[in-house]
Design a protein around this nucleic acid. Structure first.
Lengths: 346, 346
DNA sequence: CTGAAAGCGCTTACAG
DNA sequence: CTGAAAGCGCTTACAG
């Protein structure tokens, strides 16, 4: 009755009056398959409940070579926004499938990374999520290729490993559409650099131009700067000081947007009265700005959830890059459309 | 020579010409204790290297009932700043001790929490870190009391479990000192609510008043509002509209500070020319404001590292609450001191 | 429909 | 100084 001193399977079997074999079949869900009698099954379940039996995972692990865990190796958990939201999605998806997450942060250190990968393989995780903070092309560490691995927010052009990344190109198109839909007439500029080996910047820019081209327009210029508040402030400030007066600014992420907001304020330019602003990433920061900046969001949670799902769902591990749509987060950083003339009858 | 098909301990033993027992003693670091011959030890190490032998963790776990893992249960990993930095500290501390982190997020759901705790106990984690995003008093879940557990950023007044929390009271004193040291003369107000069951707010406020009392001053008023940007903006805006003109504002966290910055700007008040501002938490956001807001930082990383250390270090698990100092992050949100008259000779 | 037996790969008294 | 043997708690062919 009392769960003193950890009941084991043999205790359950004894109490139910069956063999360990039968008890095991019931517990692993093979009762019907093994044609266990209704009554035997009942007695086993009864005994489990009475003893508060919980299977010993280590024993199961040793027997089955599986551990019901998913390893997550990332360069910077600490980066907050991305990784932690991704973890939340991954954690929930894993738990739904009776798995737990085992995590390790490399801090970008290749030696630590090697160590973590070995540790995880030693521990026989059922699969590994390899995550980078910044969307980029990578070379998958060798050891990982031998394991069930899914890449998240990165991909390896030379590897068949499945990868889940945001649809940055589509996101770029969305950002441009926001300005077009608001009838922004002045020049449209992009703020932020697009470094090599990262794909977020270049793809966003490409998507923006792709959409603008549809209406015969294009990005007038790119104001390059690191994706950081202060750098964006300074670059934009200096640029505005030359007399530039954009109609719309597309910031390559929310931190850049914050710097841009500061620079525009300093020059007495109103958002969205004088300048329309759109941003990327959809972090909390976007909602903190006044007015909220419209931001094309990284599908944080979905990335983690989908990656775990594909890792754990049998047969769901198809090679290739899956691009997840980037949803639009609303804000007040472009002018509201004038009310439609009249609603067509429905 | 080639690590084909996973060598096991018996393979190592055979190759080294010793028994599994001897090989095991060498690998578990008990060679000297067991008086293994120099030569036998050498041959074992040799064989390990040649075979690329890695012990099977599951087998070790089953045998020893230990797993070299630390469980982390938190309400919101996704909250970013705190949890993820804490994870970084914990992860590194764990790895140094050959442990990996197993994480789970409850999203504040008691049922999920129960499930996670059971899962972790089933998996025989060597200890559990129980973490809350907000510093508060809690009631430790029953199951946890039976396990090796350390509380992080929270504590249970009715439980002897060790707890690591920031020294919020000391942090409050630090914040007040910043204003005093800068010779802020006008009234000092605090912005942010201090809800019951959380201790960060109340303790910070108490610390502030404690320090001010030393010079015969005190907080003139508290402008209550949730610790969020927009709420802080609105509360401060409304308050300033009544004609309030504070000399110094202490914001209970960085998000509040951001809202306060927005409200001050709207009223044409300069920081630090007209108003000095100090904040808490020391998140990245503090560095993004113009000027950077001086912020008394939560010791994120240390909290995680110390907690893991106390969990894993033998005998280091003393009951009681340990308060970690909150370091000051510099900024330009109070006036620079007039240069000291003359440097005393050293 | 059910059970006896082997075995997953280690660690650790115990005996010599 | 070293080895044979038991056993951690399961799962799973195999035999009936």
């Amino acid at each position: 009755m009392s769960p003193r001193s950890k009941a084991k399977l043999s205790d359950v079997a004894t109490r139910a009056g069956v063999s360990a074999t039968t008890a095991s079949y019931v517990l692993t869900g093979r009762a019907t398959e093994m044609r266990i009698s209704e009554s035997a099954e009942q007695r086993v379940r009864q005994a489990v409940a009475e003893l508060g039996y919980r299977p010993n995972r280590s024993a199961q692990n040793l027997r089955t070579s599986r551990t019901s865990t998913v390893g997550v190796i990332s360069d910077f958990v600490a980066s907050g926004h991305f990784s932690s939201q991704m973890l939340a999605g991954a954690s929930e998806a894993a738990l739904q499938r009776d798995h737990l997450l085992v995590i390790g942060e490399t801090s970008g250190d290749a030696e630590v990374e090697r160590l973590l990968i070995e540790e995880m393989i030693d521990r026989q995780v059922d699969g590994i999520l390899y995550v980078t903070r910044t969307g980029m092309e990578i070379q998958v560490p060798e050891k990982l290729a031998e394991t069930r691995t899914v890449l998240v927010n990165c991909f390896d052009p030379d590897s068949p490993l499945p990868a889940f990344v945001p649809d940055e190109f589509g996101g770029g198109r969305t950002a441009a559409s926001v300005l077009l839909d608001a009838d922004v007439t002045g020049d449209i500029h992009v703020v932020g650099e697009t470094p090599p080996h990262t794909f977020a910047g270049p793809q966003r820019l490409a998507g923006i131009n792709d959409r603008l081209a549809e209406v015969g327009r294009s990005v007038t210029s790119v104001v390059p700067c690191p994706w950081a508040v202060e750098a964006a402030y300074e670059a934009t400030h200096a640029w505005l000081a030359t007399g530039a007066r954009p109609g719309g600014l597309i910031c390559l992420n929310d931190r850049v947007a914050m710097g841009v907001y500061q620079a525009l304020a300093e020059h007495g330019l109103d958002i969205p009265g004088d300048v329309s602003v759109v941003s990327f990433d959809g972090t909390e920061l976007a909602t903190w700005l006044r007015p909220r900046v419209i931001s094309v969001a990284l599908p944080f949670v979905e990335l983690g959830a989908r990656a775990v799902q594909s890792l754990l769902e049998p047969g769901a591990l198809a090679p290739g890059v899956v691009r997840l749509p980037m949803p639009l987060m609303p804000g007040g950083s472009v002018p509201a459309l004038p009310p439609t003339k009249e609603q067509p009858h429905v």
